[in-house]
Simulated assay, not measured.
Amino acid sequence: MWPLDPSRKEVVRFAISCRVLTLILQVLTRFLASSTPVVYWFPAYLLQDQELLLRSLGTMPWKPLVEDSPSRQKVPRNSIMGLLYNWKTCSPVTRYILGYFLTYWLLGLLLHCNFLPWT
């Protein structure tokens, strides 16, 4: 192996430490996201507690998916889509939670497709 001068040794050491740190962070976030439901329970609890649109059990304040069905049965939409459609009327806590998850999803989609480290 060729001898490395001190500046190259520092660069190699820095590159290896950055890669190890990135690897550790990716593995930790994968373990936390897949093995602990608390990460998802807490935002769900905040949404149920803070958001008025989710408090009513049987009624949906937004339009149903099928308005004039032959059986006159209302088919509710996904509650997250209902919150996104009514973004302006949502509480700030709901906006922050939805914004965080949407940003995480979009960044993950863009970075993973470009072979960049993202979990």
Rank of each mutant, 00 (worst) to 15 (best):
S69L: 14
L65H: 04
V93P: 01
S79T: 13
S91D: 09
T89A: 15
Q50F: 11
P64R: 06
V66S: 04
Y104F: 14
P64L: 07
S71K: 12
M60I: 08
S69H: 12
W62I: 02
N86H: 11
V75M: 07
M60V: 10
Y100D: 07
N86E: 15
R72K: 14
S91R: 09
D49Q: 12
L102Y: 06
Y45L: 08
R77E: 07
Q50D: 15
N78R: 06
L47I: 04
P76I: 04
R55Q: 15
L52Y: 12
K74T: 07
T59Q: 11
W62Y: 09
L98F: 02
Q48H: 11
L65Q: 06
S56C: 13
T59A: 12
W87Q: 00
K88C: 01
R72F: 11
L53F: 13
N86G: 01
E51W: 05
P64M: 05
L102Q: 07
R95V: 02
G82E: 05
G82I: 03
R95T: 00
V93A: 13
I97K: 03
I97L: 12
R72Q: 11
T59C: 09
L83T: 01
R72N: 14
E67H: 11
L65D: 02
S71N: 10
P76A: 06
R72H: 12
P61I: 06
L52T: 12
G58N: 09
Y100Q: 07
L47D: 01
K63G: 06
K74H: 11
V93N: 05
S79V: 13
W87D: 00
Q48T: 06
E51F: 04
Q73A: 14
K63I: 09
N86A: 13
P64S: 10
L83H: 02
Y100G: 05
Q73I: 14
Q73E: 15
L84N: 03
L98H: 00
Y45G: 01
L52C: 08
T89F: 09
D68P: 00
E51G: 00
W87G: 00
Y45H: 04
T59M: 09
I80H: 03
S69K: 08
K63P: 04
T94F: 02
R72I: 02
K88W: 06
Y96Q: 13
S79R: 15
L47S: 01
L47Y: 04
S56K: 13
L53Q: 07
Y96A: 15
L52G: 13
L54N: 01
G99T: 04
N86L: 10
K74G: 03
G82W: 08
F101L: 10
K63N: 11
N86Q: 13
D49V: 08
L84R: 09
C90E: 03
S56Y: 12
W62M: 02
S71M: 12
D49A: 12
P64C: 07
L84M: 15
D49N: 08
L53N: 03
L53D: 04
I80T: 07
P61V: 06
V93D: 05
V93C: 10
L53I: 03
L83R: 00
V75P: 01
S91V: 06
D49I: 04
V66K: 05
E51V: 01
P61K: 09
M60S: 11
N86P: 01
W87Y: 07
N78H: 15
L46P: 00
G82N: 06
R55S: 09
S79L: 14
T103R: 05
L102C: 10
Q73S: 09
P64F: 11
S71I: 08
P70V: 10
N78W: 14
Y100E: 08
T94E: 01
P92N: 07
R77I: 04
